[in-house]
């Protein structure tokens, strides 16, 4: 992105990371990407009782160019998928995606010809939020988790390092099928 990605590894970079993370997480601007039932819950989250303004993100942006978070709220049809990708491409970096609801996360109960079986086929997803539709509290929880993720995100060489480590950890991880006991 900018100059911060060019910083050498070390004390300076980690300080900038913390500052950038803190600033970024405190003013996340979501793009309106309401699709179906979840969009209504997303609007409810922004309205009086749940009041997303408490986390500094009640202003849903009409234009993707002014947004850095896309909340994919609802089922994504095959016809909508190219539009969704276009909106994602128009958002400036850094950007994050919350896949809200089971339909966006995996196709949910609509395992059929019309629905994309998980929005991660189209855009990279940071947070998967289950529920049909998720309650506003769940959406806020997902947003807070995303804040955490943004706060601790790395920059420049550190980001490359972190991506490499995550990839290696994923390759070594125990497959779900071999896990024993209660899966919590």
């Amino acid at each position: 992105m900018g100059l911060e990605e060019k910083l050498p590894s070390g004390f300076l970079l980690t300080t900038v990371e913390q500052a950038a993370g803190w600033v970024r997480k405190s003013s996340v601007f979501p793009a309106t990407f309401g699709l179906a039932c979840c969009a209504i819950e997303m609007m409810t989250t922004g309205a009086g009782r749940y009041d997303l303004a408490r986390f500094g993100m009640e202003v849903f942006r009409g234009s993707p160019r002014q947004a850095d978070l896309m909340i994919v709220a609802g089922r994504v049809s095959q016809k909508m998928a190219p539009v969704l990708r276009q909106v994602y491409d128009q958002m400036p970096n850094p950007k994050w995606v919350i896949s809200m609801g089971v339909c966006a996360s995996s196709g949910g109960m609509f395992n059929n010809y019309a629905i994309v079986q998980g929005v991660d086929h189209v855009v990279p997803v940071d947070i998967y939020l289950p529920g049909c539709p998720p309650r506003p509290e769940m959406l806020m929880d997902a947003i807070l988790k995303l804040h955490q993720k943004i706060q601790t995100s790395k920059l420049g060489v550190n980001a490359e390092e972190a991506a490499r480590e995550a990839e290696e950890a994923a390759l070594k991880a125990l497959p779900t099928i071999e896990m024993k006991g209660l899966l919590r």
């Binding site: 095959q78 998928a81 990708r85 059929n112 010809y113 079986q117």
Partner: peptide, 10 residues
């Protein structure tokens, strides 16, 4: 069929 249709766009 109900599902499982490969899709291509862009």
């Amino acid at each position: 069929p109900l599902g499982g249709i490969p899709v291509e766009y862009k």
